[in-house]
Each structure stands twice: as C-alpha cells, then as structure tokens.
Write a protein that binds this DNA or RNA. Sequence first.
DNA 1: TCGCCGCTTCAGCCGGTTCCGAAACATGGC
DNA 2: GCCATGTTTCGGAACCGGCTGAAGCGGCGA
Lengths: 233, 233
Amino acid sequence: MPNLASIAALIGDPSRAAMLQALLPGEALTAGELARIAGIGAAAASAQLKALAEAGLIAVHAQGRHRYHRLAGDEIAAALETLIALPQASPRKASPRKAWPHGEAFRQGRLCWHHLAGRLGVALHERLTRDGWIEAAPGGWALTGHGLARCNALGVDLAAARRAPRFACDCMDWSERRPHLAGGLGREVTGLLLRRRWLTRIEPSSTDTLQRRRLTCTPEGARALRAEFGISL
Amino acid sequence: MPNLASIAALIGDPSRAAMLQALLPGEALTAGELARIAGIGAAAASAQLKALAEAGLIAVHAQGRHRYHRLAGDEIAAALETLIALPQASPRKASPRKAWPHGEAFRQGRLCWHHLAGRLGVALHERLTRDGWIEAAPGGWALTGHGLARCNALGVDLAAARRAPRFACDCMDWSERRPHLAGGLGREVTGLLLRRRWLTRIEPSSTDTLQRRRLTCTPEGARALRAEFGISL
DNA sequence: TCGCCGCTTCAGCCGGTTCCGAAACATGGC
DNA sequence: GCCATGTTTCGGAACCGGCTGAAGCGGCGA
C-alpha cells in the first residue's frame, strides 16, 4: 500500500530524476556519467544509484572498473514517460490539446526504453497486428508463421528477442494514446531499423535527454517502411 | 524538464500519496476526510491539498463550508495506477507474471478515476470499437449513428458526457495492457452500469482504497452485458 | 445575533534527506 | 609492483519540507 509514496519519492528527487531521464533512451550509462548529468559528486551519485537499484528501478551491470546502469524494464520507462507527459495533460485553463512543448518532432518518433514510440511506433504496432505478423498470446504477443518468415527475411535477431523477460508486449504511448510494441521483439526491430539507418537519432550527443531520444525517418527509410511494413507517413 | 522530479515529489510524500489514493475511485472528498485518511491534522492537510491543486493534480469545488477535492482528470488517475502497478513489474528474481498481490478480483473489474477498468473495462472497449458504437475522431473517439441509438436506448446521459473535457478517449489499463474507455462517455456508461446494479462495489465502505475500488458483476448484470454488449465472462 | 464547525494562515519546531570531502577499495595499464 | 582511474563508504554539515498548535475567516443553524 505504501508503494505509491515510496516509488514516487524515489523518482521525485531532482538528482535521481535526472539520472532516470538520462536512462530513458535505453542506453546503459556509468555511475560517473550519471553523476555529471545530475550535477552531483560521485559519492552522492553512488548512494542514489544504490537506492534506485534496491527499489528495482534500475539494473546494474559491472564491467571492469565501470558499473553500467540501465532502466530495469519497459514498465519503468513507460511509467516515467507517463509522468513526464502529465503536466501537459492538466489543462488549467481548459486548453484543448495544448501543443507538446518539445515539439512535434518528438511526437513523430522517439525511443521509449529502447523500443520505438511516437507516431512511428504506433503505426508499426498497428501494421504488425493488422497484417498478421503477431497474434495475441498469454502475457503479450507471439509471432505468427507469417511474421516469423518476415522477421527472418528482414534479419531481426529473434534469438536475442526471446532472451528478453518478455518477448513482445504492449507499451502505452502517451502522445498517441495507443499501444506501441515493446518487449524483446520491440527492441530488436527498433535496433534493426536504426542499424539499417531507416531511422536515425537526430541529436545523439545532445545533453538534453529529451532531444537525445528523438528519432527521424531517413528518405530511404520512408521508402523501406512503406515497402516492408506498408507504413506511409 | 524538471517536470518529472517536481510531479513525482508531489506524489511521493506519504500524506499526499494517501490522499491521492483515496481519490482514485473518483469520488470527491472533503479536506477533513482526507486529513483523517492521511492521518494528519487539518492544518497540514490544507497545505498539502493546496500544493496538489496548484500543480493541477486535483480539482477543488467549494460548497458551503466544505471543500470537495477530486482528481483533476483521467490522466492523473491513469498515471497513479501506473505507479501503483510498478512494484509488481520489477521482477527481482525474474518471476514471470507474478500474481497481483491484491488478488484476481481486483483485476476483474475496478474503478479507475470514475470509469470502468480491468478485464470488464477492456472487454467493453473492445466491443464498442469492434461493433461500431464508436469511431476514431480527433483527440479520441466519437459516437457513430449506431452507437448514438444504442446509448439513447440504454439511457446513457450523453449530454453530461459531452460536458466533460473530453467526450471519449483511451486510458491505458495496466493490468490488461490494453486500453479501456475513459472521458465523459466512459464515466456515464460506468455510472449507468452501477445505477442499474449490473455492477456493484464490493466493499464501498472499506478503509482500504484498493478494496473500495473493486467492482463485481451481478448475475443479472452478466446477462445484461451479454445481451446489450455481447460481453461474456 | 450568537455559537459551532470546517477550513485556512502563520509561526516555530523537528526530522529526514542530500550533499560534499576524505579515505578506502577495486580494477586495469604501465 | 606501482600508479591512475572509477567507485564506494563514512562522517559531518546544511538544507528543505512537513507537522503541530494557535489564531483568524467564513458559512450554517438555532
């Protein structure tokens, strides 16, 4: 019952919130990087990261003298996005559908955890279900025979996708209010789109966490998405 | 940018979190009631409620010497539910699909803000879209001609529904991971189901916020839902 | 009009939390 | 083996935020 307060309090600290936002694109960052992002010393960052890990919000992976931190799962990322989207959703003066302050480009395509979100993500999800690539299964989605063939043809690493805690499930898209594809399959498909440069990070080096997550479609990507998935922008 | 931290901090205080949870069923409560629920004095409660109202999380309605407080919108309720559902979603030991601690009955049907959520809510949403009661519209859903006729036949107060900030939109259901119906229409339909006693609150007087939100289907309700909506449990 | 009740404001206290610096530990390169 | 780098632990100080109690305001009923 005290879950709500304890978890929200954990997210509510400015330093921890900055770290969590920095992890939203899905990359794993070291303790030092996170400390710099949050603007605090290494000692303080260490303590905060320990608290986040103990609460199960982030996962830690030690590699040599570095410790890589990443969000613990899709649900965490989705919950963070929901909270970030909240202020927009409280229309003090009954302003209907106020423009998202970070611009339409952010709405178009972005990384949520490490799968595709925004209009592109929702469109992809819709095509996969409607064209029979995936079908409902206990706890999420499973590939159909058709989907299996198409994924193999595209070069999606299905083995990696199956190693994820969940193979394929929905993740609510706050900007579109419809689900997009999450889980291992969502991650692998998104990775493929990025590797093929059908989608590109707009400002991967930006210090602004929101900007770092923005995705855009390349010209060849637009053609390929139409040919492979039937998505037209 | 500091939205995440400020909002989460607001929810993160134990007293405020208790108040917000108490408001989740959608009822409006007075400052005194909320103070008692949170276990703090009237003075402290007043300050906290002021902060929540200024942040746009709750709406206040003065009536005589009472001040009624309620959640400011569907999005707020949905975000709170997402956070409450989080701990379940962090499988420390990779336990797949651990049972929701509050039991299956909570998953079956419940109030989210003041519309129907859980398996029943998702089933209703699916029938309404699939049977052509509602169709996609800018910012949410609109009634079709068919849906209009059916709602009028059932006695749904559409005028009240249209007075809501949004007529009909999706709200993500964390337990089912599919959308259920929110907005004014969602509220009015749910109100109708409760008035007709097709659904009933299981323990409306419980002090446990979660228990107060549980809904169950009466025998006649099961028959009616099948006849009117084609929903079979 | 008076008194009751709900709520708000104000001052002051108290507790918790976060931060930094110093030191210790661990790792990897030379 | 030694040093540089990354990270954690410890102690102490400062800050912030919430709570209580008393007083003030406004509505309601007698």
